[in-house]
Design a protein around this nucleic acid. Structure first.
Lengths: 306, 306
DNA sequence: ACGACCTGTTAGAAAAACTCACCAATCCAT
DNA sequence: ATGGATTGGTGAGTTTTTCTAACAGGTCGT
């Protein structure tokens, strides 16, 4: 049978008090009031059944019993501190592996990476390109950044970052651009529409949201990745449909135009983590990403003009 | 600057779980539910920022980080356990010194001492004869047993045990006894009244409570201690006035009679302790004494006949 | 496939810890 | 000596933590 340990928090209060020979200073070190420390010491004395301090005037003197306990607890706590220090240090320098689809990585993450590293230097972020669908257990990842619609796989914990919003984009260099700029959304019907196998329903869902018929679409070549699709649009090969965030920088620089704005989809941009992962390193990243994503909410809403 | 310790209670839960390789068994050892342990481990993992267990089927496996922490915490806790064990053991075998006036000691405590020692063997009780008034700090005592009226000195913590009740007692061998047995309390007026310097007001307060005049009292010799007073009564030298508890055994055995019962005084029998003494060894004694004192409440009340 | 067994999770209840405000004692500077 | 500053102790009330109870989901053995 296991012998009983004393109340550990009381022991911590005692150790600090014994080391500093002052209740008040110990309270300061432990970030509590002196009353709390005084009480904890009382609890410990009561538990052990012997006085640990002699109250002498406005100070304290350790009793022999107190001295022995101080030595033991100081050593024990030092050992625990060392071990935890080591673990924490090791955990801190382990890279935080973030899975991310190549399209997002290329067009959104990389332009922001330097700033992210500067603002969260402790994170030691490593990006791992990885396409949707993600492994259910997120094997080898500390987190994944992706756009997806609920329901989420069991075993994920999901931080919503922003609604996904998509819309048609085209280059100023595209031959028909001038005629399209002030037209209805229906004007896209006759254009060369670029699309990607990774988002086969993008045009369909946008057309539905605009109440346009789908039969008259003129699909051009299909691109394997969203990344290529957007590059094709930038090159003026036709009208692409893309999530707002992934063309934000191109819109800002004028390389792309979005005459009909963007439209919410059922999907969201989320940060997904295995449900029982430690949260301490996660929260700063989640916060940063959310801020960065919502900073783009200033992009034109659906039907907005640019 | 002091580095931070991990949450200690969480660490204790982890240590038990790691040692037993089971959340459920650890919960059993710690006398909590498995949910509590599971949660504590989660808190610790979160605090340290690294997983300590790999959940594998219905069991647990320590991660390398967990193993290191287990070794460190097992050693640290063992050290603390040892030290506290030693302190507790030392405290337990230190005698518990109970100050007690000789009268009470002789006539009440000693007859019950064997039973007390048998029922509270861990207490290691030492009686120290000591007369009222007691030192305000109760120097050298763990507690004091005495009859006194409030207010109590500052720095005492007082466990009330029973009201003090006093009444006249006399021996069957006393010459006038037969005539007194069925008389009014006023019959004492003409008798030889025994009294003691240690309680000069005893007769006075009793007479007042009976609404009898005090002028006609025939005081006999004064005895230095209550103890002698009672012995004088037993010897048939006159009528003594004594607290109920101190003649209880004599009444039971017939060596003394209390024809007019007993009367509450302003005083109480109390167990007094220095206010910041540890309570763990105290409570069993206080409980035992209270039970023993109130067991005598069955003695005849004031005006009751015997 | 089923029950036995184990761990994780949640809301709400219970317990522990803390703060605040006060007191008493001591020390120190005037 | 006296009044202010500092220190420790205490009690009431509140906040925070921890625990329980009940359920969910997975794995193992039969």
């Amino acid at each position: 049978m296991q012998r009983d340990l004393p109340p550990l928090n009381a022991l911590r209060a005692f150790e600090a008090t014994a080391r500093l020979e002052s209740v008040s200073q110990a309270a300061q070190e432990l970030h509590v009031t002196h009353g709390a420390v005084s009480r904890q010491i009382r609890v410990l004395e009561d538990d052990l059944g012997s006085a640990l301090f002699r109250r002498q005037g406005r100070g304290l003197v350790l009793t022999p019993a107190g001295q022995r306990l101080r030595d033991a607890s100081a050593a024990a706590f030092a050992q625990l501190r060392d071990a935890c220090e080591q673990l924490r240090g090791h955990a801190a320098q382990t890279p935080f592996v973030l899975g991310c689809p190549v399209s997002l990585l290329t067009r959104w993450m990389i332009p922001r990476l330097e700033r992210l590293m500067a603002e969260l230097p402790e994170l030691n972020l490593h990006l791992r390109p990885q396409e949707i669908p993600f492994d259910e257990a997120l094997t080898g990842l500390d987190a994944a950044l992706l756009a997806a619609a609920p329901p989420w796989p069991a075993g994920w914990h999901v931080f919503p970052l922003a609604r996904e919003r998509i819309g048609p984009v085209l280059s100023p260099r595209f031959a028909q651009t001038h005629g399209l700029l002030h037209s209805d959304p229906s004007a896209v019907l006759g254009q060369r529409l670029l699309h990607t196998a990774s988002r086969p329903h993008a045009w369909q869902s946008w057309m539905e949201s605009q109440h346009l018929p789908m039969e008259k679409l003129h699909f051009s070549q299909s691109y394997p990745h969203l990344y290529h699709l957007i590059e094709a649009a930038v090159a003026g090969l036709g009208v692409a449909i893309a999530p707002a965030q992934m063309v934000a920088d191109d819109l800002a620089s004028g390389r792309l135009l979005a005459p009909w704005g963007f439209q919410d989809t059922a999907a969201q941009w989320v940060l997904a983590v295995p449900s029982r992962a430690p949260t301490s390193r996660l929260m700063p990243l989640a916060t940063w990403l959310e801020a960065e994503f919502t900073a783009h909410e200033k992009l034109p809403a659906a039907n907005g003009q640019r």
